[in-house]
Structures are given as structure tokens and as C-alpha cells.
Simulated scan of single mutants.
Amino acid sequence: MIETIRAAFVIARRDFTAIIFSKSFFFFLLGPLFPLIIGIAAGGLGQQVRQDIDRPIIGVALEEGQAAKLIEARTSLAKNIGNGALPEFLLLPDADPLDPNIKDWLDSADKPLTAIMSGTLEKPVLTGSSRDVKRWTGKIALLSETALSGSNPISVKNDIVVATSSSKKRTQLATAQGGQIILILLTMILAGMVLSNLVEEKTNKIIEILAAAIPMDAIFLGKLFAMLGMALVGITVWSSLGFIGVSVISAGMPDLPAPAIGWPIFCVLMVLYFSMAYLLLGSLFLGIGAMATTVREVQTLSMPVTMGQLLVFFLAAFTVTKLGEPMEWFAVIFPFSSPFAMIARAAQMDNIWQHGAALIWQAMFTLIIIRFSVMLFRRNVMKSGNSGRKKSLLARMRG
């Protein structure tokens, strides 16, 4: 094992140095300018998730008769201005309309509440975060006036609270979704370079020369970590330029929704989960490179893997609002979707231990794929000879 690690380090240092100091690496750093446009367009794919995140529910703590009038007013207005323009109401029959601690119901109601309407229809009080109160004050006044048959203009008293569980949930879901999009874009941009590097060295017979002196496991590990190191260098450069650009344009960094575990740990987990997603997809590409001998075969075999990677991303993105449900657990356990599902958990859940277990599981599966790729390479390249290269693709896959 020690010899394998040493040999892998030699290969990784060789490949990393050759890539970083090559002329093409500068143009590689310019690459994200093009997929950036695609990433902005792909933001529309999260529309359904954003609708789930921003569905407003306002608790109603009014006397029974006034609550009924408010519901009737909402039904009447919905016919004219649309149901989506008005908040949903959740009656709180056990809440005291004049309770000065009515804000406690924001976190103890059956459903996450955006705000709470209390007091009376003549003098309503809207309790919630600053963002939610400003957003819904006008609609609450309109509904109150409609419930009272528009006798007098209604003035809504605002009761601002620092934060609620509902507002935190919405911002954390936005952070989770953003983390997933960043991971999938970086993984798909960078992982394919592992495949092209291996196929190039197979064509030049370099890989067979290395295999004669170094265990194949060490070669594959070294190549994976060399490409990962190159990817991290590129990400560091892009992130630095991005931070500088945002700071200059916005005169300072904007306030971003904070994840549940805090920004420092979340950023560390972003790097770790990107590394695992990269290694998982890269090890799979190594297996493809072991089976393919021509560029056409590389394209034929890599396309299903790329499409499959998009499917597992869509799976993780679909379950971002379904923590604890069976579908979300499947996304967490399935190795290829696990990094994306776990970064969403990091944004919404503050326990750390689950990330250690997930990273160990992903690393174990990466080693399994590498081992399988080595077996394919030994069968299809090291023992093929001239006759072996004439075999069909299906025959090489079967060994």
C-alpha cells in the first residue's frame, strides 16, 4: 500500500507539473466564460423549487367572526386579481389576537409561517421578518378593507422580528440550490479532461510504458489526483477573480443567505464534495478510457455517462425541498448524486457527523470504481496485443 501511494504521488506530480506549466492551461482558465452563459440560462430549471420555497402562509389570530370575514374577502379578491397574488391563510384558533408574544407562533405552528396577522380587522398587526412584513402589508390592508366592505382606509401596524424559521428555511433552500448548481457545472466542465488525458497516453503508448514499471492502481490514482489538483487551481483562480469582480461592481460583497452550518464549514464542504464528485465521475471516465481505443468510441461511451450525471443532478435538485423523505434518502445514498444531495443538507441542517459518513462512503465507492477500471485496462490493453485491437467494443467490455 505504501509503495502504491508513493508511485501514485510520482504520477500525480508528473501530470500536475506538465499540465500547470503548459501553454494550453492559460486557455483552460478562460474556458468558464462560455459555460457561464449556459449556467445562467439553466437557472430557470429551479422554477418549481423556488415556487415551493416562496409559498407564503400567513397565520391568522383573529376572533372567529372576523377570521371568517377575512377568508371571504380573500376568496372574493382572488377571483379578480388571481390566487397567486394573495397569501394563503392558516387559522390559529388557540392564539390570542392581543397577545404581545404572538411572534412565538411563527415557529410553533403546524406549518412554517411567513408572518402572523393579529389584532382586529380595524387595526391589524402584521408580525414577521422585515422582508415579509414589507411585502405583505399592502395586501393585508386591502383584505381588511374588503372584509369591512371598504368603509375606511386601513393602516397595518408592523411588528418586525429579527428572523423566523420560515424565512431562514427559504434562504437556506436558496443556498442549497446555488451550491448544487455550482457543483454540477464545475464537475461537468472539468471531469472530462481525465478521459482525454488517458486516451492520449494510450494512443502514444506512454501508458503501457508506465504500466511496465508502476502498478496500474497507482497510475490511475495518480492521474485522478493530478487532474483534481489542476481543477482546484483553476477554481481558486476563478473564485478570486469572481470575488474581486463582485467587490468592484457592488462596492463590497453582498449579503448572501447563510447556510445552517455557517459559511466557513459550508465552503470547506463545497471543496470536499466537489472533490468527491470529481473523483467519482473521473474514475468512471477512467473505466471508459480503458475500454475505448478510438475517439469515436470515447464519444459513444462518454455521452451516456454525461447524460446520467445530469439525471442524478436533477434527482438531487428535485429532493432539495424533501429532507427526510425516501426519495431524498435515495439521493443521499446513491454515490453519484450523494455529493449534490449532501451539500443541500449542509445548507439546511446543522449536524456535522453525517458529512463525515457521506465522504467516507463516496471515497470507498471511488476506490471500487478505480479497481474495476484497472481490471478493464489490464484485460483490454495490457493483454490485447494486435489481435485484441481488432475485437469489437462489446468483446472488450466482456474481457
Results as ranks from 00 to 15, higher is better:
78 A>S: 15
143 L>M: 12
221 L>V: 04
377 F>L: 09
273 Y>K: 11
207 I>Q: 06
292 A>G: 02
34 F>Q: 01
292 A>E: 13
200 E>A: 09
195 L>K: 05
21 F>C: 02
346 A>V: 10
325 E>C: 01
58 I>N: 04
264 P>E: 07
253 M>D: 02
310 L>Q: 01
261 I>V: 08
53 I>K: 13
146 T>Y: 06
59 G>D: 03
21 F>I: 06
206 I>G: 00
260 A>T: 11
55 R>K: 12
4 T>E: 12
56 P>C: 06
385 G>N: 03
267 C>W: 14
293 T>K: 10
7 A>S: 10
129 S>E: 15
148 L>V: 07
364 M>S: 05
81 I>C: 03
374 V>R: 00
276 M>N: 02
141 A>K: 11
24 S>W: 14
232 L>P: 06
244 I>E: 14
117 M>W: 02
171 T>P: 01
364 M>Q: 00
226 A>N: 01
118 S>M: 12
35 P>M: 07
218 A>C: 11
349 M>L: 09
300 T>E: 14
148 L>Q: 12
254 P>V: 01
111 K>E: 07
197 N>W: 10
60 V>F: 01
72 E>H: 09
264 P>N: 09
304 P>G: 03
25 F>I: 08
232 L>S: 03
157 K>D: 13
226 A>C: 07
396 R>Y: 00
369 I>Y: 00
256 L>D: 08
355 H>L: 11
259 P>E: 08
92 L>A: 04
357 A>S: 10
214 I>Y: 00
174 A>S: 07
116 I>L: 02
239 S>I: 15
176 A>M: 08
108 S>A: 13
263 W>L: 09
175 T>K: 13
68 A>L: 08
215 P>S: 11
210 L>N: 06
232 L>T: 10
344 A>S: 13
52 D>M: 14
318 F>D: 07
16 F>W: 14
40 I>C: 05
186 L>W: 11
254 P>G: 05
252 G>E: 10
153 P>I: 15
19 I>C: 03
257 P>M: 03
74 R>T: 11
237 V>W: 02
353 W>Q: 05
40 I>F: 14
193 M>Q: 12
103 K>F: 15
185 L>Q: 14
276 M>V: 14
184 I>V: 15
197 N>T: 07
194 V>F: 00
230 M>T: 13
178 G>N: 13
296 R>Q: 12
13 R>Q: 09
23 K>W: 15
321 T>V: 15
183 L>T: 04
75 T>F: 10
160 I>G: 04
53 I>D: 04
276 M>W: 01
208 E>K: 02
16 F>D: 03
131 R>N: 09
325 E>P: 01
233 V>T: 13
264 P>C: 04
297 E>V: 04
266 F>I: 07
175 T>A: 10
206 I>R: 02
356 G>D: 00
88 E>Q: 09
352 I>P: 03
378 R>G: 14
88 E>L: 12
197 N>E: 12
206 I>Q: 05
375 M>S: 06
85 A>S: 15
356 G>N: 01
314 F>A: 07
263 W>R: 05
2 I>E: 07
71 I>V: 12
250 S>Y: 13
7 A>L: 00
98 L>M: 15
354 Q>I: 15
93 P>Q: 06
223 K>R: 08
260 A>W: 05
43 G>V: 09
299 Q>G: 14
328 E>H: 11
219 I>C: 04
59 G>K: 09
321 T>H: 14
273 Y>R: 11
136 W>Y: 13
112 P>T: 09
216 M>F: 00
79 K>T: 08
137 T>L: 03
